[in-house]
Amino acid sequence: MTTPATLSFLLMDAPYEQSRTATAFRLIDAALRRGHGVRVFAYEGAVSLAMTAQKPHANAIHGRTVEEEAHPTPHLWVSALLDLAKEQGVVIDWVNCGLCVDERGATDVVAGVRRGSPADFWKMASESENTLVIATR
């Protein structure tokens, strides 16, 4: 077990677009489980990750119900990460870029996600042991 540290992550991809999002969530999960604090700055499309309006759906083509389809909803994953941090007794700070939120109307997000600005990302990076930018392409 290493000494607890704080890691910052910058996410840019919108939900349902790229494997990068799932990988980023796996990284955050692994960091929290190791007792590290995590700071997330969601930029551009990534502000929609925490939107509560996301809904799972059935798959009429394959005849599967909502439950059988088990369609992922990223806002539940964000909530799960916030809950995991509480369980682990470590800090997680999840900030959505305010201008990006306004552009997309992504105002209704899970509890625990706050609004901020790119200045927050600078602060996060300044106060963290390391920062990983997972940029979109």
Binding site: T2, A5, L7, T23, R26, L27, A30, A31, R33, R34, H36, E129, N130, L132
Partner: peptide
């Protein structure tokens, strides 16, 4: 994936 976290830390 935790190995990547350790590298970052």
């Amino acid at each position: 994936i935790g190995t990547l976290v350790e590298e970052l830390v």
